[in-house]
Design a binder for these strands. Structure first.
Lengths: 335, 335
DNA sequence: CTGAAAGCGCTTACAG
DNA sequence: CTGAAAGCGCTTACAG
């Protein structure tokens, strides 16, 4: 069929069907006012030529791509250290698909790729962008805000910016699980916060303090969402507060690291120290003992983000500019 | 600056700089034969207008997008149940970026999205596609093979197809770790293979048999890369072969499930039964006891895939059409 | 060194 | 119901 080289265009289809290319375009786009016989001839010609519409040409003409990009800062194991990213992407992909859009995930791993992704977005390669796991002061976010393509974010990258957002209830979730920990009789609680650059860090810490009240005896930050960071934080906290009896970690992997250190230090979980995490990542249930945590419904967050972004593309008013997704405490054996 | 609506085009820049839009295009594309003063005027005009080139227009003209798509079949926790996907994407992204391409990840979660992704690719939205975690008989792969955009795959989706590929040494890795298990004195080995639809399944099983020889007493397949599947498989195997003393699982998560069941059945690891996995996923080291496994360098695989796809885009001859990435046995405490 | 012109492959008023 | 024409925003020979 093909010459091994250039693909067939609308003109080729038109020639085979014996009509003008405008007519081919009409049947392709499902216009009603086309004679049935003509439509059939065109459909046949499309099959015999193996024609597929050129996306760039269509985009240039209609000024849209039917595509939404999800942008995330990446490191080698993003999807492991940021356990919410995978279900969030999955949820967004699902809902976007239902609305007729294809989601494309862009991983930003260097200033150069930030530059490239920024040019793609600003250059109209996507109809909208969902921003995830970005830092508080990401230059890419700043650049995108100067453009007028629809933006939406998981959490709030720029405090005070008006980018619509959806996020799990960080404050409420941290408060609820901390209260539960207090209710089990723990009275000397420490918190392992997330990295300072993560927008959720202050929120989860705030929830911790709301729930712990006087039982809070200290907290520390980490430099990343890794188990090693959780281990370092726990060692430090243990040294500063040898009498602690409860740990509230800002993520399950941090909590896992904390339990390791506690165990090596001879403190049993949950007998001597109660430990709780956040996210209900797959690793939570695998822990020994299984980790009590906050089940944040990242998939629901992804779905909400997709709905918000689609509404913006369509120029609709958003019912809420900042959606908070409720979550539940999952109480297992670690506390 | 902007009217809140349409973005500036090359003509706007040209007007501000007092030149023709052809000249703007020349400085934008770094052509040498442009007068320094002209170049400066254009650069200034670009800044003051906030101009960003329209990607669709450029793509239509130059017939390329500087973009490569990585396509993966998805389920809610792909990145957890397929632990190689994340580092593989990371490696591909890194190398593609060095070559000047942006990687975009497309998650296929339904026939509809397969259709959509197929149309995007066939419609020229990307310069090439990397196929990952596809089943042996994916209709999307079949469709893409009829197109002539460069394709590359992690593992071989169509046995006998000539899509270039890169993959970890599945046979060799499984053989090596099985031999090691035998060397520790185990003589009644069973294997938990992967899902039947996964291309790696027969390879890892083959390696198991090569390494186990007469020590192989049975094996079973699973229906997915999940811990639950590993648990079911282990229960079945334990019933059929109560005297087994070694388990070779096709992935770390399957091995984790197997250890759970063994533990519940009163068989200690490694004292009574030695267990080994594959991939060296993050979960491997977290296990209790830490899991012996094969460290498959998924990042290196991603880098190789990127190199191969770029070579094809450039029309270069591939040094090898099927690259095998070596891996190492990581011996920990589970066997 | 620079401009006018053609054309990449589509869609969509505008006539008829 | 259908065709001829314009134009989306670029790049690149072709002249000069």
């Amino acid at each position: 069929m093909s010459e091994g080289t250039s693909r067939p265009t609308m003109h080729d289809v038109a020639r085979v069907a014996g009509v003008s290319h405008a007519t081919v375009s009409r049947v392709l786009n499902g216009h009603t006012n086309v004679a049935p016989a003509t439509a059939r001839a065109v459909a046949d010609a499309i099959v015999t030529t193996g024609y597929v519409p050129n996306r760039a040409a269509r985009s240039l003409r209609v000024q849209s791509t039917d595509t939404v990009v999800l942008v995330a800062r990446e490191n080698v194991n993003v999807f492991y250290t940021e356990p919410t990213l995978s279900p969030m992407a999955s949820g967004a992909n699902l809902r976007l698909s239902e609305h007729g859009y294809q989601m494309l995930l862009a991983l930003v791993d260097s200033p150069r790729s930030a530059e490239r992704v920024g040019s793609l977005i600003a250059g109209g390669s996507f109809d909208a962008a969902i921003l995830v796991a970005m830092t508080n002061e990401d230059p890419l976010v700043a650049r995108l805000m100067t453009t007028n393509i629809p933006l939406v974010t998981a959490s709030t990258p720029f405090p005070g910016s008006d980018i619509p957002s959806a996020d799990t209830d960080n404050v409420g979730g941290a408060r609820a699980i901390t209260e539960r920990l207090v209710a089990t009789g723990r009275s000397k609680l420490v918190a392992i916060g997330g990295p300072a650059w993560a927008p959720v860090t202050p929120m989860r810490l705030e929830g911790f303090h709301q729930g712990a009240k006087n039982a809070a005896i200290g907290h520390t930050a980490v430099d990343g969402w890794t188990m090693a960071a959780g281990q370092r934080a726990m060692s430090e906290l243990l040294e500063r507060h040898p009498d602690l009896d409860g740990v509230v970690a800002a993520s399950d992997l941090l909590a896992t690291g904390a339990m390791r250190v506690l165990n090596e230090a001879g403190r049993r979980t949950p007998q001597d120290v109660g430990v709780v995490g956040f996210d209900d990542a797959p690793v939570a249930a695998l822990n020994d003992p299984p980790l009590s945590t906050v089940r944040s419904d990242a998939r629901a967050t992804g779905i909400a983000l997709a709905d918000m972004v689609v509404a913006q593309i369509r120029g609709q008013e958003l019912p809420q500019r900042h959606v908070v997704i409720p979550n539940d405490v999952v109480w297992r054996e670690s506390a």
